[in-house]
Design a protein around this nucleic acid. Structure first.
Lengths: 338, 338
DNA sequence: AGATGATATGAAAACGTTTCATTTATGTTA
DNA sequence: TAACATAAATGAAACGTTTTCATATCATCT
């Protein structure tokens, strides 16, 4: 019962291997009669075309690799899910590359394409894990690739994201609109581009409102719950405390709220807290978290579509494609205490 | 600059393809001198062995496929992450198969192995997506496979999970120990085996404590936040309300708490709520959620190790391998109101 | 120096497809 | 009916490896 190959089927159906191949890949090229004949044999013996054989010949693996810092983060999981769907319905499979932020692992996964194991890359980190000659234009040196979440600054690659700067600005504007003047930010690591963009938005909102930008009000976190706790603590130590804290993701906002409440502060009466991402649980913490909503599904879909285009040989213009964000105002924000 | 193949390298280094192959796969078989010579050429021209070629020859894809109902659920994401790590360090890549519970998609991903695109399967659903002859023993008909989370009842396959029955029993015993007598359960769908096991544990704890098992106290949920809300509502409508609710996962517990608080109930003073899973956010909802902790990392690692063993040709005994759970008692549970 | 065994290398045959260039069959038209 | 156009089927080569078997090289020992 060793697995049959296309030649065996060909022999059994008394046609050539070429014909059997066509039965699967372009059935319209073969006459109804032989089509049926071949299908019958295929059913009888349970033949399955071997993808490796085909891949070798066509030089297409039918895989794409998604390089993600941490699949455990709801944002990433949400995006990946949409990607996987889009890929599957286009006949591609998704190789999961959770890198835990390690350059070495990014490399490893990026290498899959040079080894012919993947045809394209979806990149959610903030490094380009390909050896690149800086003096040459970047584009042609890269495989089909799209970068999600504004992880990379280069204009030469295809990117999909929410406009982080505008989104942060909108969030801060909202806080200003309900009377806050002393607005702190718990940012992400300063080496991640999307965090820098959010910082930019945060600052420009303040500036435009004529509010002084103070360094002490900007604390750098790590995008996890624990650093939300830590940063909130630092903020409480301040001589003059903020009346609102804008956290660059929901995890940190949750951590901050947790700590503030533990210290006896009422949210939002004493301090407003705002998040970013709108993860599932944002709605279910107490108080429910006001946050910036990112359309994860749409981001994922846009990513995969742009990649599929490239894989089909279509030229895709590099640069950012922005998807609309929205403010979800819940109960963790309120008018500033007088 | 068309990509070079092993023959080109062989020619450039004036050795045979066989030798080049050995340089990569069994370097100890080749003399230091030629090793260096070949490596030099490889570096110079940037050769990368093509995996498809190798796969075709060896009949091993180097991929495993993880079939998961929903990658978006923190439990699954946590497990997957560990799997991915284990796979990578054994030289395997993980194909992500998020099925959204659809049989059709389960099928699709299971088929990857018959198409030679994957060598083994990690299965987290509760169906066996392989055509199987019921009259024959199941084992030999399946590819290398391990099932996670007690999704499947058959004893003929390799399974890794927490002992759901024992865990549920422990949780309920704890509630009993702090004085609860009227303990409701918000279960998972009755067609998922792990939920049935938990139900079993729930009941046997009650019985052993001499507490009557009442059907009205068992409400079937869908394992998502919303159904936590719905089920809690039904429970509140009861003539005689429970003093504690044991939810079969944290999402439903979070939904239930949300609803109860909204209705003005104090947790845990009026009603205790207990979850299952110990997702990240369990600690950060208010009140923090008492729950059953599942060692996700360990589960993932055990799964992948068992699969790797099979892929190495070692025989693995079918049956459940149980991993230790633990009770995380936080602030959503307290002594029963008198 | 010659024999022996160990160690390195090479040649060639797969692996299962696709595809290009042909051949053969089937109609159609003059 | 012959010639032709079109459709359908075929054969052979190629894709890039690995691996078996045979051969060649090397060092070692008598």
């Amino acid at each position: 019962m060793a697995n049959l190959g296309i030649k065996d089927i060909a022999a059994l159906a008394k046609v050539s291997p070429a014909t059997v191949s066509r039965v699967f890949s372009s059935p319209d090229l073969v006459s109804k009669k032989t089509l049926d004949k071949v299908k019958k044999v295929v059913d009888e013996v349970g033949y399955r075309p071997n993808r490796m054989g085909a891949s070798l010949r066509t030089r297409k693996s039918g895989n794409i690799v998604a390089i993600i810092p941490d699949i455990t983060k709801p944002v990433n999981a949400g995006i990946i899910r949409a990607i996987e769907q889009g890929a599957q319905s286009a006949g591609y499979s998704v190789l999961l590359g959770d890198t835990q932020g390690l350059e070495e692992r990014e490399q490893h996964y990026a290498d899959l394409v040079s080894h012919g194991q993947a045809d394209g890359v979806l990149l959610f980190g903030s490094r380009i894990p390909f050896k690149v000659d800086e003096s040459l234009p970047l584009g042609p040196q890269l495989p089909p690739l799209v970068n999600g979440n504004e992880g990379i600054e280069s204009d030469e690659i295809v990117k999909v994201a929410v406009d982080n700067e505008a989104a942060a600005k909108a969030a801060v504007n909202y806080l200003i609109s309900i009377g806050h003047k002393r607005i702190a930010a718990i940012t992400g690591p300063s080496d991640v581009p999307s965090s820098r963009k959010r910082t930019k938005g945060y600052k420009s909102a303040l500036i435009e409102a004529g509010i002084e930008v103070e360094d002490v009000l900007q604390i750098e976190g790590e995008y996890d719950v624990k650093s939300g706790v830590d940063c909130a603590q630092k903020l409480l130590l301040l001589r003059q405390r903020p009346t609102a804290i804008f956290c660059f993701n929901d995890d940190m906002a949750i951590g901050a709220m947790q700590f503030l409440q533990q210290q006896g502060f009422k949210i939002p009466e004493d301090i407003s807290v705002m998040g970013f991402d709108d993860i599932n649980y944002a709605e279910y913490v107490t108080p429910s978290l006001s946050t910036v909503h990112q359309p994860l599904q749409e981001i994922g879909t846009a990513c995969i579509n742009l990649l599929l285009k490239q894989l089909n040989g279509e030229k895709v213009e590099p640069g950012s494609q922005y998807l609309p964000f929205s403010l979800k105002i819940r109960n963790s924000t309120g008018v500033a205490p007088k």
